[in-house]
């Protein structure tokens, strides 16, 4: 059986939302930055068990530096959120707690994954300084560039959604 699920990626401009989707859906990566305007929809089906598949209908929204500015109607009926920030740019996670709380408060029933992207650009020492901040907020460090943990992000989600 195939179940369809709407996944929405949100986060600031340039944190790598589009790149993560392309890595997951097409297994490609590109260095050039093309700003997403409006919404892009992509789809990928993964098998989580024999005769059990999840079709991700992935909504790539244009970046917003303030989550409250995201068009609410795009978020209706979402089965899971992926909140993305850029590990190499502290400005994209200085408000992390507030933004995550906002989602928890307004969409309490919708599963949420918080991921720090571009882990390929930072080292252990760098990450260590933010340990306290990331500890209970962040689910995964990923890289759209080298593909690190992108697959596991989505397969975890799929299992949680069934």
């Amino acid at each position: 059986m195939i179940t369809s699920k709407k996944i929405v990626l949100i986060g600031h401009f340039g944190v790598g939302k589009t790149s993560l989707i392309r890595r997951f859906v097409e297994n490609t990566f590109s260095e050039d930055y093309k700003v997403t305007i409006g919404v892009h929809i992509s789809k990928k089906t993964i098998e989580i068990a024999e005769d059990e598949s999840v079709s991700f209908i992935i909504w790539d929204l244009e970046g917003q530096d303030d989550i409250k500015k995201t068009r609410v109607s795009y978020l209706l009926g979402t089965h899971a959120f992926i909140y993305v920030f850029d590990l190499s740019r502290p400005s994209t996670f200085e408000n992390l707690k507030n933004e995550v709380n906002y989602l928890h408060e307004n969409y309490s029933k919708t599963p949420l994954k918080v991921v720090g992207n571009k882990v390929d650009l930072v080292n252990k020492e760098y990450l260590a300084q933010y340990n306290d901040k990331f500890d209970d907020l962040v689910d995964l460090f990923v890289s759209a560039k080298n593909g690190s943990r992108v697959e596991s992000l989505f397969s975890k989600l799929a299992k949680e959604l069934i």
């Binding site: 409006g38 919404v39 929809i41 789809k43 209908i57 109607s73």
Partner: peptide, 18 residues
Amino acid sequence: DEDMVAGMLTAIKSFVED
């Protein structure tokens, strides 16, 4: 692909109705 079409239509609909 009806899933993609449906997604796009819904996004457009939301946008316009908003």
